[in-house]
Design a protein around this nucleic acid. Sequence first.
DNA 1: AATGAATGAGTCTTCATTCAT
DNA 2: GATGAATGAAGACTCATTCAT
Lengths: 197, 197, 197, 197
Amino acid sequence: MQIALKQFVDAGYHATKVSDIVAEAGVAQGTFYWYFKSKESIALQIIEQGRQQLLEVIGVGYRTHSGTADDMVQASEKLLYRLFQFAEQHTHLMRMLLDGTGFSEAVREQIMLTRSQMEQGFVQNIQRAIELEMLPVHTEASVRAAFLMSLIEGVIVRWLFSSGTSASSSGLVNHTAEQLAKETARFEFYGLLGRTD
Amino acid sequence: MQIALKQFVDAGYHATKVSDIVAEAGVAQGTFYWYFKSKESIALQIIEQGRQQLLEVIGVGYRTHSGTADDMVQASEKLLYRLFQFAEQHTHLMRMLLDGTGFSEAVREQIMLTRSQMEQGFVQNIQRAIELEMLPVHTEASVRAAFLMSLIEGVIVRWLFSSGTSASSSGLVNHTAEQLAKETARFEFYGLLGRTD
Amino acid sequence: MQIALKQFVDAGYHATKVSDIVAEAGVAQGTFYWYFKSKESIALQIIEQGRQQLLEVIGVGYRTHSGTADDMVQASEKLLYRLFQFAEQHTHLMRMLLDGTGFSEAVREQIMLTRSQMEQGFVQNIQRAIELEMLPVHTEASVRAAFLMSLIEGVIVRWLFSSGTSASSSGLVNHTAEQLAKETARFEFYGLLGRTD
Amino acid sequence: MQIALKQFVDAGYHATKVSDIVAEAGVAQGTFYWYFKSKESIALQIIEQGRQQLLEVIGVGYRTHSGTADDMVQASEKLLYRLFQFAEQHTHLMRMLLDGTGFSEAVREQIMLTRSQMEQGFVQNIQRAIELEMLPVHTEASVRAAFLMSLIEGVIVRWLFSSGTSASSSGLVNHTAEQLAKETARFEFYGLLGRTD
DNA sequence: AATGAATGAGTCTTCATTCAT
DNA sequence: GATGAATGAAGACTCATTCAT
């Protein structure tokens, strides 16, 4: 699965032949089919496993029961830090989830489901914060979660996957997970204008 | 090209057969090859054309020479409005650019290049705003452009492409381009906490 | 036809596309079919035309009515000289006839027919020489004609077509038509051992 | 490879479909590509194998260290006999080598190389004979080898391949390998005029 | 558990030929 | 006479999957 994941991400799902996977794994073609029902099935299993790890990472904390704005920023920073760390350690998986390099319908659906579940987590957190009057009410929680999730996904993509291609390096490339978490949390809560005090 | 774009986006690049394209176009297989060198080449041409349109849309304004924070917000709102309108009218193209549904290496590279050029535009605008002291200096322009671009891409994806799959509808689905532009601009400048006055 | 012949010979019949021919000729694809019924038909016409020229060249003389061995050698030398000259001036045609670069059945048949007619000419000449007791009777005329024809074909091929490829240059490459005719005639009548006087 | 060779020779390289080969072989299309990289590659392998066999056949003897003219004629006769026998047993291969029925560039090159190597063998033998003063010096060895090779190629073509087409049967058709070797050797050394004693 | 040879459906691409203008 | 866009049959090659051993 490690090998398959890497190849899916590096070369794309379609461009990755089962024969490539087994070649790198050093086993025979038939062996693949002893462990996996099909090429699609291995992709599905990779995601399934990744989903669980990912949701654990973001699921842990962030469920404050009150606090100041600063508390929120700090809590978010911590969550983002954990998430970015995880992304750094599971580059291939994240790439599969965020790039979606041309998988089949069924696989794409699972990818979307995973991201959707992640986003749902944010919706709940934001909802809670609004109820606790830690956040103003001017916008729906789901919209704000969408903003947040967009931000996070985009940041990870630019941070970890922007090299190689001729595309610009987005200025995020040389950041540490920690710096990135701080910057992102600041933008999350205060926007481009930053804190106005 | 219209037909090919639609099929690429709906079924995926690989799943789209040249025979499907010509069938819907009502011409013979050979005719395709009279106009396009290969299947990849039509994808490349689609992007090339789309890139130009897209860059025109965001290239127009946003190059203020001074002004208050409110001016900035309004200018950004206008730009976003134009962009979201364009996205609404060119759903398939945007999907090709933002989803990248498993195209070949060469095509993916062009997609990335297009997005990168768009992001570069934002970098320059932000840089200008910092020079004019309209934005605080605490963060590099390229980082902020990355945030902004992430936001925009994520918003468009959730707004236009989130139906169909079982994934949640992200709360953005039923917004108009106008509403979305307003909300996004607000988040862009003030973050989750919103304006503090 | 000139252009087609050249391309058939240089690239091979199958590798030569009608579009290549018309491109070099500077006319449209359809124009080709105004003048020729098909790709095969142009090849057939080329041969037909070439056959007539070729048979004229070798048909002229060589019909002695008596004479010494020296007379025969000289007569043969003249014939070969004419033939080699013709070959030199019609390289492409000769190549088509002697190389037979993968033409279709019908074309190949015409090529064979042409060569066969040429060989028949030699059979008759040799037959005559035997009747006139200018040549010993130990071998059938047809066999000797086969030897002769083999010799001539091989010589022309090596003389005119052996460059380019990595294949050896056969030592014939830098001869003039005249030298070649002399050497060939000598071998024809006296073999490797040469004249024994 | 047997089957492919036969079909290449009977129908021509281009006219032979991979599907024809596998059909006659009784295997699936894919199986072909398990054993051969491409259609061209099987042709190349056929030649490679054939080259080795052929060069062995002519490589054996013929390297006398002195002797009379008669010795030479007999030695040559033996060599020719072996060669003609081989040709008779490997008709298809010889046809591929001598007819060159429209193969691709790469294959043609290998064919030419094979024939060239054969000719080189003759050059050396003749050179030796000249050094040993068994042959007169009036002509270069390479030229004489060209004559000889032409003779041999032409004889084989006419002997084995002249039926079928409407072309004449060249008078060689009904000879045995032995007779042919004798006649050819005679012509080789004494030419049309034959021995003058 | 593992092998790897065998399968064959699937697809892009080529190119001789046609035909409306 | 000439054009060149349109046709569509044909064929090489790929690769996920199967299966006898």
